[in-house]
Amino acid sequence: MKKIFSKTFFPVLFLIVFSKITFSQDHSVDESIKKGISQAYISYISYDKNLLMEAKETFEKALSQDNSNTFALYHITYCEYKLLEMSLRKENEGLFDKYYDAAVANAEKLSETKGIGSEGKTLLAGIYMMKIANSPMSAVTLSFKIHSLLNEAEEINKINPRTYLIRGTMKFQTPAMFGGSFEDAVKSFTRAVSLFEKQDSINALEPNWGYLEVLAWLGKAHEKLENYDAAKFAYQKALAVEPNFGWVKSSLLPKLEEKMKGKN
């Protein structure tokens, strides 16, 4: 008995138990984040606000278990960004004020975090764009800021497709008189698509949203320029990747097909 419970036994036992607990915790934090990513994805393709809120809760739970987990914070901020976007719909009006300040604070924190700075700045630019959509006069102070953030994001990581997605959306949404351009939007979206398609496989926890979104926006931009074949290609490609992508399936593609019928 004495031999079994030697001096090294308890330290070793402690190490084994401790690393098992830590590993399990990490493992469960990672699993939570993956679960949240899946929920967020489904919420986006079905544009379901409640599911998005659930996803956000999942990420918050992960963050509470590991408050230094940058990925958890990132995905929380992404959910907030998407909730701001959803708040632009009439039925979701109250959401904007609920999430805006927190989204900005989180995105600012991410912007200063090494390793995820480009994603943070891109997300912050997207959040400011939602602010402009909610309150057009704030374009006076925010437009310049958005351009700066995207330039900085690009400088940090030239191959982040989400930077070009947000830049393209900015160019699309801004009236020409204020510097917007559908042509520039197409260029940015095409670049984003190319980067998405060429990116190496990434860690399952890292930001990886935006491919379906950019295809939809690319289609819209082509439509504005009356490049209907290219628009249809973008929409169909999006549906090939995700046949249940609601925005394209129920709205964008059917409307385009009607338009193309009318033209012929």
Binding site: T190, R191, V193, S194, E197, D229, A230, F233, Q236
Partner: peptide
């Protein structure tokens, strides 16, 4: 954008 009409095959 380069693609085949009426397909989802293409690239930038």
């Amino acid at each position: 954008n380069i693609f085949l009409l009426n397909t989802t095959d293409g690239a930038a």
